[in-house]
Design a protein around this nucleic acid. Structure first.
Lengths: 171, 171
DNA sequence: TATTTAGCGCTACATTCCGTACCGGAAAAT
DNA sequence: ATTTTCCGGTACGGAATGTAGCGCTAAATA
């Protein structure tokens, strides 16, 4: 699903720069053309709508799971660390912010789902019930997302680790 | 700080409709003119940049505190209920989503701060230390915000109330 | 009552971007 | 050798932008 040709990668890296510097509104064919020298026609051919650019940006950096060893507490801590690293990396936070536009509902749900999936996996593998899983993921992950998206401050890593301890102690 | 004249209220109510229906990108002078009949020049006079429209929308519906009685648990529960009601009300959720564009950092911080302020007030009045306050607010409020703006699902009211119980028991 | 001021509508203008279509060349695959 | 794929260039009508200027009306002021 990655970029098939060379020009696609050129445009997408420029798109990421634009996204970081000026937000999703800057991801326009004209701007991408001006930033890369790639012809405007070509930009349209690859991404007929600005929506498609965001979709491609998501595909470029897929989200794999962390290193796990099967123990619930360890695996949750590992996932927390990985998520914090990703959110500290501006691209992931910027993508989340960009997807928080009313227009991009489907993409947003997909991306957020991918971010949360590892936590659900770990908890499910530990035999935690669905309801408890929802609560646990909400308590652990939500503050991290709010920090990154709304408050633009470094994610509260230690707080999230405390939340993991609380959750595992309760189960 | 509200609208000084009649036409301002007309435009702002139309702006809110547009925001709900199509997102912040629809808050353009042309659209506001087409939706209200108010002259395009007038729209520019009132709000030279789209940014200013969002700022006015925030001012129109200020956020007051809930009914409190001085008891920590009661007041927190009251604030949770009020916040859930506001997030269920589409305008507040839509405004939050709109402000989560990279361009509107200052406005976003102000608005989120206003949303969180009542919780901080209640906890501070109860003599909770700053560090504990941050944790408490994060645990209680973050899941509500994530539900409203990333997952587009009704806010998990009962979960938030459980979080309040946990927090108050711990203090 | 006369006069200033504030607010709004209308028109015009240059500029920019949009989305689409079409053509031609170069390079790679067949 | 020939087809296919990918890209750049140009052109086009349409729409929105941001700015400027003019005139009207109603309200505040003298």
């Amino acid at each position: 699903m990655g970029p098939a040709t060379e020009t696609a990668t050129v445009v997408l890296t420029a798109a990421l720069d634009l996204l970081l510097a000026e937000g999703a509104a800057a991801l326009t064919p004209q701007r991408l053309h001006a930033a890369t020298g790639v012809s405007r026609s070509t930009v349209y051919r690859h991404w007929p709508s600005p929506h498609d650019v965001l979709a491609s940006l998501i595909d470029v950096a897929p989200l794999g799971p962390a290193d796990r060893n099967g123990e619930l507490a360890h695996d949750l801590h590992a996932e927390v660390d990985l998520l914090c690293d990703r959110l500290r990396d501006r691209p992931v936070a910027a993508l989340l912010q960009a997807l928080t536009a009313a227009a991009a509902v489907e993409l947003r749900h997909r991306y957020v789902g991918d971010l949360l999936a590892p936590f659900h996996d770990v908890l499910r593998a530990a035999g935690v019930t669905t309801a408890q899983r929802e609560d646990a993921v909400a308590v652990i992950v939500s503050p991290l997302l709010v920090d990154a998206l709304l408050l633009d401050r470094p994610t509260a890593r230690t707080r999230a680790h405390r939340a993991v301890d609380d959750v595992t102690a309760r189960i």
